[in-house]
């Protein structure tokens, strides 16, 4: 007679000793196969008196269940161990940079120009463009700079013929849009583009550069509105906390005209080499649209007023990113270009 409890402890003991799945299968066969030890018990049952059979049967079934569960449990634990062993073999050096997805860059001038455009699109402005090969008429005449005007000296010009030139400022775009507006108000424009001046290239001058000009014409526009708008732009480009100040200046197409300084973004206005110790950095020129400019565009200066401003993109980019030589922006060295991953 096999004692059930002895068999049970024997089986569970064997399972415990098992080292791998193969041994486990052997144990299973030893106890649970058709010729296994548990089956032997069932054979014994035949010899038992009838009344003892159900209780015995129940015990054997219990034993079967206990062994099965134990086997299963052991199998699970063995699998976990195996999986862990397998994964351990897949150990890698996580400090390696094996794959570097390539990602390109936009030109810093594009980044700056788009940032300015976006800032003003948010204020409801349209982005306007125009030809770089421009008529003297739009570049100068319409901008209140007639022939012989001393201001033509301020902008040495690449002429193509007596009436055609490479535009010296994006003001020419404004003049075209003003004319096209046929008095339709309001006008809110932001005009980016390449411009050209007859300058020799050096660290701070380039015969080709980029400007963004803004123009607002409507009823009741004031110089104070210009200041608020420019403060908004400076906040958006250089982060909040920069003060701006106006200084009187002169542009033929605005009156009054002002130069605009921003408190130095490097030292916060305390004075440093970037701001030459003054705490201020000149960033743009602007003013109230000259009544002559409005008149030439058939806009009644008695009823409407406006402001305009013009920013040198190179200047802003050089300030923001600490670029020392303007020619770096036109050499297209990828070591330089790759640094400008985003507008921050």
């Amino acid at each position: 007679m096999i004692d059930i409890s002895v068999l049970e402890s024997e089986a569970l003991g064997s399972i415990k000793e098992v080292k791998d799945l193969k041994e486990l299968e052997e144990v299973r066969l030893t106890y649970l196969s058709k010729k296994g030890r548990v089956q032997e018990l069932m054979m014994q049952m035949r010899e038992l008196p009838k009344e003892e059979k159900p209780a015995f049967g129940q015990k054997v079934n219990e034993l079967k269940r206990t062994i099965t569960e134990s086997l299963k449990e052991k199998e699970e634990s063995l699998k976990v161990v195996l999986m862990n062993e397998a994964m351990e073999k897949e150990k890698i050096d996580i400090s390696l940079d094996a794959y570097t997805p390539s990602y390109g860059t936009l030109h810093p001038l594009t980044l700056m120009s788009e940032a300015i455009e976006d800032c003003f699109i948010g204020l409801g402005y349209q982005v306007a463009e125009g030809p770089e090969v421009e008529l003297d008429y739009y570049n100068f005449e319409k901008a209140n700079i007639p022939k012989g005007h001393p201001a033509r000296d301020m902008q040495d010009t690449f002429y193509i013929d007596p009436v055609t030139l490479l535009r010296t400022h994006t003001t020419a775009i404004q003049m075209r849009v003003l004319e096209k507006a046929h008095g339709q108000m309001p006008i809110k424009l932001i005009c980016p583009g390449k411009v050209y001046r007859r300058d020799n290239d050096d660290a701070t001058h380039s015969h080709q550069f980029m400007q963004v000009e803004g123009l607002v014409v409507g009823e009741g526009i004031t110089l104070a509105d210009l200041k608020g708008t420019l403060q908004f732009m400076v906040d958006s480009l250089f982060g909040k906390g920069r003060a701006i100040r106006f200084r009187p200046s002169y542009f033929p197409f605005t009156e009054p005209s002002v130069e605009v300084d921003m408190s130095c973004h490097v030292c916060g206005g305390k004075g440093c080499p970037t701001c030459k110790g003054t705490g201020w950095i000149e960033i743009l020129g602007s003013g109230m649209v000259h009544p002559n400019v409005l008149k030439m565009a058939d806009i009644d200066p008695q009823k409407y007023s406006g402001f305009a401003f013009g920013v040198g993109i190179e200047r802003l980019a050089m300030l923001k990113y600490g670029i020392r030589d303007i020619r770096d922006l036109y050499t297209n060295d990828v070591r330089f270009l790759k640094a400008f991953k985003r507008f921050d």
């Binding site: 204020l123 607002v216 409507g218 526009i221 608020g228 009187p248 009054p256």
Partner: peptide, 23 residues
């Protein structure tokens, strides 16, 4: 304004009909 000074000039945004800015 040149002689009275720009320092006290207020900073306001234009009050005008709303426009949609877009590319």
């Amino acid at each position: 304004i040149r002689l009275l000074g720009y320092d006290n000039l207020k900073a306001t945004l234009p009050l005008m009909p709303a426009t949609c800015g877009e590319l």
